[in-house]
Amino acid sequence: MPNNPTLDKNMTETETALRREAARLLSQGEVAVFLGHEEGWDGVPVPFAASTAAEAGRLVWNPLSAPHLAKYLLDRLEGDEKVGIVVNGCGSLALDRILKDRRFPRERLHVVGIPCSGMLDPARVAALSDEERERVLKDGPVDPGLFLDRCSWCDVPNPVVSDTLLSEPLPVVRHRPEYPRVAELEAMDREERAEYLRGLYERCIRCFACRNVCPACNCRECCLDQWEPLWLGRATSPAEQQMFHFIRAFDVAGRCIRCGECERVCSVGLPLMELNDKFLKDITELFGVERPHIPADVEPLGCFEPGDPDLEDHG
């Protein structure tokens, strides 16, 4: 059952509250820096680290505040200063991912949560005509296709981690995750699918934006960067491209929060969720995990059941 995302009508008030709260945290010395968004050059929100109460005045919260911020915590591992961060529902999953992977101490965080009913995809909105864009951002109605893909399956509107909530929690309707794109690929002939994926690998410029934005790709040192062992050859040959995408998707299997940030930041538009979702789908089918993208205390690949399907039966 798909979700029906909508735009929150009170975003302006929320934005004011966010600025006030961040300014308070910064001026009272509760946090040394506050991670949020500011308006970028083309008007679209971009990640921003405010370090003074005055800078908190630059924070924005609007229908295009899509980028998740939790990954930036890894830039602040050194030292013991406290960090403030704003998260909506899915943003809190990203944060929880980092916390559950024990990559940032919870004690050093002050989390400002915002219940969220939907965010637009900045790229889709940018492609609209000027008038259309203005209309959509002002008062809608909004074509459901303009929302981020993740909004269409989101059932976590309320942050799962927060210290302060800026508005009332929203009602929650649970969905059973569906993976139509994977099902389509599975329906293909094997050789046809291989050919399709070769095309995908071949279009990749190996910029690593997908890895760098991913909250589940949070190792201290990424194996893709290592030289010894050389997990990934530097050549962009078909084999190494395949290996790159294999490693990137497999290493987040069981920890991927299905945020789609990897796909969103890919400058060549690769449908990376077709790789990530395969694992999510199989994890449900093989191990009975109903919502595998929600960070759990023990991840599906970090545990087992003696009664798991047996491999010998599988050939």
Binding site: A49, C207, N212, G233, R234, A235, S267
Partner: peptide, 28 residues
């Protein structure tokens, strides 16, 4: 420091840029 706070550290800008030319040499 301010600018870098936002950067993801990916290689998108350098790989799409027509003037960036840095390279490495390796063996396979």
């Amino acid at each position: 420091e301010k600018v870098a706070a936002r950067c993801l550290g990916c290689g998108t800008c350098t790989f799409v840029c027509p003037t960036c030319f840095c390279f490495g040499v390796a063996d396979c």
